[in-house]
Amino acid sequence: MSTRGGVTLRYGALVVMAVTVLLPFVGIVLAALHSPGAQISGLSIPDQWSWQNFALAWERGNFTNLMRSSVLIAFCVVPLAVVLAVLAAFGLTVLKVWGNRTLSAGFVLGLTLPVELVVVALYFNLREVGLTNSYIGIILAEAALFMPFGVYWMQTHFSSVPDELVEAARIDGARDLVVLLRVLLPISWPAITTLSVLYFMWSWNQFLLVLVMMQDPDRRTAPSGLGLFVGQYSTDIPLLAAASLIVIAPIVIVYLTFQRSFVNGISQGAIKG
């Protein structure tokens, strides 16, 4: 086939796939703009654009509380998990503490553990110490679940740093913490940013853990609140569509803003695995 024909064909196929990916979004946005309670059949332009579904969904779904919980949990989990992962990777890869290979393998093992294995006993363990129905329990549990990837990711990054850089600082008499803060951190921001963005996404989207650990409906996160909202308003499509868009919006904004970090995280993080 001729080159030009080939290129046209490529673009044709790509556009078809892009439409397949985007069509559900178009559908749900159009659905959200119909008047509340309307019966919608397929993709259809509403007779009149109605924005009130968003306000209605926000109020009925109690999204002020849900969003506050989501933000609170994510803003605690991300710094906590990132700092712990950076420190641990520094100890394992740069300081090479005794047992570092066994420990690294132990963290990597966690990458294949399904949440389901952890969540059953975790609920009963935390119930004993009064940490169910509490933000602290969820924050620590999420940090623990995300730890294997974070430690692995920062280890991969630190092992790509030339040894000479660390050794030079050591000869100048720098202590461990100074090496980390003055030498390694300044060149690690891209890796840390990527990790933070991925952690934010995982924390925001976490569903099963929150569903199990948090019974108080006022303190659930946006996705878990949405999961129960469906049960209550299963036939009101415009309202459900608006509620879904409310939950989707923050993560889409973060994605489009940090698009590069997402790409780097997904692609480089997995290379050595």
Binding site: L84, F90, L103
Partner: peptide
Amino acid sequence: LYVLPALAVYLGFAIWPA
């Protein structure tokens, strides 16, 4: 000391429940 905090959280909230 650097590894311990991460290890404690990981052991306490992932491995122990598992």
